[in-house]
Amino acid sequence: MAESVRADEVSAWYGKKLAIRDISVTMEPNKVTALIGPSGCGKSTFLRSINRLHEVVPGAKVAGDIWVGDRNVYGKDMDAVKVRANIGMVFQRPNPFPTMSIYDNIAAGPRLSGRAGKRKQMDELVEHSLRQAALWDEVKDRLKEPATGLSGGQQQRVCIARALAMKPGVLLLDEPSSALDPIASFKIEELLLQLKNDYTMVIVTHNMQQAARIADFTGFMLAGTDYVGELVEYGETTKMFSNPSDSRTEAYITGRFG
């Protein structure tokens, strides 16, 4: 079930270096939220703070709270692995497990987390996930083949299906189509619009037109002279791209800097 994601004064560090400061924002369920901003503004750091992936980096830490529904991701008893099971993530480069078949890529998450049911149930889960990722028809006759044999766009959809197989409430996407050709990229966009019905989606993208096309809400992040990323403006995408409130947002989306 799609749940809201609420960041409450989230800051993140790499060692002593503060990367993002006091980000507070609520990302609505069943909506696509895009995070845009120049390189180094902390978009990915913020995204990786949402599912506690940031803390995997040695010396990295996060302050503040992230609420997914009514659960605090950084709550005392919260297990990071469980958090990540409920918050799927897709990365810039398609990264299917290289030694696994298409089928096993999708089944890996449920199996590793002890959710593997009977063979028939797993078959259904794999099919359902691949259908959700709009990939089923293209791969149903070659499920046992290596996922790495697929095209880049297909591999990325395998990764999306793999995330969906865990039945997450939230899907985080870090530049999911920047390594793909335009057609594969449009397919991913179309897919995200469909998945909106079931998930809360947060996408980091350098492609502003992509944000304009698919996001309901857009957040603009920027690092100031101290190189610490902040959320400059957040609002409805149509407003952000036609009449932003902050002059820095205006300057960025019109290509005056970046």
């Binding site: 037109q209 791209f241 205006e250």
Partner: peptide, 9 residues
Amino acid sequence: QQPAASDLR
């Protein structure tokens, strides 16, 4: 050029 914001207006 995909103008945006005040440019697009």
